Amino acid sequence: MALNTPQITPTKKITVRAIGEELPRGDYQRCPQCDMLFSLPEINSHQSAYCPRCQAKIRDGRDWSLTRLAAMAFTMLLLMPFAWGEPLLHIWLLGIRIDANVMQGIWQMTKQGDAITGSMVFFCVIGAPLILVTSIAYLWFGNRLGMNLRPVLLMLERLKEWVMLDIYLVGIGVASIKVQDYAHIQAGVGLFSFVALVILTTVTLSHLNVEELWERFYPQRPATRRDEKLRVCLGCHFTGYPDQRGRCPRCHIPLRLRRRHSLQKCWAALLASIVLLLPANLLPISIIYLNGGRQEDTILSGIMSLASSNIAVAGIVFIASILVPFTKVIVMFTLLLSIHFKCQQGLRTRILLLRMVTWIGRWSMLDLFVISLTMSLINRDQILAFTMGPAAFYFGAAVILTILAVEWLDSRLLWDAHESGNARFDD
């Protein structure tokens, strides 16, 4: 018995066209964080690309023209004298008006014999932002004059995390709450300039795509075929072959399989920071003279006294001054041990922890910024005066060393310790 099946006739004509040209192939790229070699397709503007294995951002879609970056830099340069030299806060102490600005706080630190601690604050609040705007201006002028731009481009990517104007702005709020127990506070004209400078700096850093600047100024022929001998440069993120001198053909720094002496430098910085954190938390970090009496505060006791007036601000200072430094030390110690013992479990967790400490590390400088600003506000000789204690130097040095330890660690070593050939990683 035959089955009668109805015929289905399409209502619209289906047209099949042959592909007349070869589909576009992607360029081969190595991930600078996990060293995976993959094919990167062509990316349009405002599109980002991520590593298929570790999800690290390979290409950032946010990109401004150099002219727009230069305009932002010149605007920031105009704001800087007002943000640093004009009063941020006014207080009335014992019937006398006192003005506080950024430069005055750094000068008070240096004047009291601790120039190293003052230079830490100076670099993060004044030096690094000033280098940022002058570097962008150098790129703008240098591109037109045919100057060598490689050193500036190499420095810009590392400079971003040292620009800490946003953290200093939080420190202004913390210092205001600490001082309000002794005097009446009012915002100064410099505060508005400083807030504007923070906003412009944040926007500029978020749109400063150094890798795209490398592509514009020093374009290189990408690798179009897969080759395990391809290496990625950690300076400019170019994937290719080393030249005859073993250097990256684009930025001219040595092109090595792994960062040289990464573990040794990381261990040295980490152990030194552990040693410095002990006096930083045991010795007094601030000293207040009130009517001839002397009151010393460690980091913890200062947080407890701050909690009596504002528990939320005390929580912020606790996280930045105690929780973050010790968390960074514990995480980095764990990561280094996992590399030495070739741990194969929990790779995803370790990668996330490394990215976390990379982002939060700079916030530990908050305590030094609060001390710097408070020193310029309260300084009335023996009637009422505020000065920093010996722990300030140890704390600042420990924070900087932990930042350097994270920067010096080559994250690809975590993958080397893991089993080879993993296309995915999980716990």
Rank of each mutant, 00 (worst) to 15 (best):
P6Y: 07
I8E: 14
K13V: 12
G20E: 10
R30G: 14
C31N: 00
F38Y: 15
I43D: 09
C51A: 00
R62K: 06
D63S: 15
R68H: 05
R68S: 02
M72R: 01
F74H: 03
L77T: 15
L79H: 12
A83M: 03
G85F: 07
P87R: 12
L88N: 04
L88D: 03
L94F: 11
I98Q: 08
A100F: 04
M103L: 06
Q104A: 14
T117N: 01
S119P: 07
V121D: 05
V121A: 07
F123P: 00
A128I: 04
A128C: 12
T134E: 03
S135R: 00
A137I: 03
A137M: 09
L139G: 02
W140A: 13
G142C: 10
M147C: 10
L153M: 12
R158W: 02
M164L: 04
V174D: 00
S176Y: 04
I177P: 13
I177V: 07
V179Q: 02
D181I: 01
Q186I: 10
G188F: 06
F192D: 08
V198Q: 15
R221Y: 07
T224G: 06
Q244V: 05
P249C: 06
R259G: 12
R260M: 06
H261G: 03
Q264W: 02
Q264F: 01
Q264P: 02
L270S: 11
S273L: 03
V275C: 07
L278K: 02
N281P: 02
I285C: 04
S286Q: 00
G292D: 03
G293D: 02
Q295K: 06
Q295R: 06
E296Y: 14
D297C: 04
T298H: 10
I299Q: 13
S301I: 07
M304R: 11
A307I: 06
S309E: 06
N310H: 02
N310Y: 05
A314H: 04
G315Y: 11
G315T: 14
V324G: 09
I330T: 13
I330D: 01
M332W: 08
M332R: 00
L337H: 12
F341E: 06
Q345Y: 14
R348M: 10
T349R: 14
L352K: 09
R355C: 09
G361F: 06
R362P: 06
W363C: 05
M365S: 05
L366S: 09
F369E: 15
S372H: 04
D381E: 05
A392M: 05
F393Y: 07
G396I: 04
V399D: 02
I400L: 03
T402D: 10
A405Q: 05
E407N: 14
L409F: 10
D410N: 00
H418M: 05
G421M: 11
G421H: 14
A423M: 13
R424P: 15
R424T: 14
R424S: 15
F425Q: 13
F425R: 13
D426R: 13
D427Y: 15
